[in-house]
Amino acid sequence: MAANEEALTNVGQATEETGEGTRMGATVNVGQAERWASAIGGGALALYGLTRGSLGGIALALVGAALVQRGATGHCNLYDAMGYSSAEGGGLRNSENVSVPAGRGIKVEKSVTINRPPGELYRFWRNFENLPRFMNHLESVRVTGEGRSHWVAKAPAGRSVEWDAEIYNEKEGEMIAWRTLEGADVDSAGSVHFEQAAGGRGTFVRVVLKYDPPGGKLGALVARLFGESPEQQIVEDLGRFKQLMETGEVATTEGQTSGRSVATKEQTSGRSASAGR
């Protein structure tokens, strides 16, 4: 068990260290491969090493550590990164177009391939009221006018954060870009791009999100809202978008039975009692 404890302590340290690294302005361009090597190599070893002990939480903590570490790479070099290539057709290239000025904020870019035509995906996304179906941190999005919408997102302790956004650029079937309007709790701008994938593989969907976490009292709230790693959040959102578009539903185990939920009389009597043997 000593080995277990040691591994745990090390993990804790790793988390803290990488936690430091996630701060904006942290050293960038540290080889992704290098980070992966340590995340996977070290993480996996510790993870498996711990399998003899009590698992769940420990494993998750570990994965979390790797996640934070990876989050760090997402934060790198925001400033330069803003010259990103997604900007054909407007995008976020010009700082005056963006609610988050160039040189500030955090930028994340992620992509996924979805086995559906670009137009279909575009239409689904263009109705922003659909977004909470796959973006788990969103409570609701209401369209308030042409190109305008009101967003409500979940925040810790049952609270919520709200903002208004506008579509400021779009290209039918190809691209949508939006940004928050004056007075938002979190300044952010995002764009989504739909490109025909090669070899009949459907659509290559790319999302670019930039947000500016304000300091002060909202700082903590915002950090939680986007999770430790906005990059990870977007990867998962895109995964759910893909599930929804390809299969018509989002894979889930939420609400399923387990030994953790003790059966009450009504819960079991329904079927089990009537089931003929």
Partner: peptide
């Protein structure tokens, strides 16, 4: 445990 139910 509780009986399973349809989730999707």
């Amino acid at each position: 445990v509780p009986d399973p139910k349809i989730l999707n």
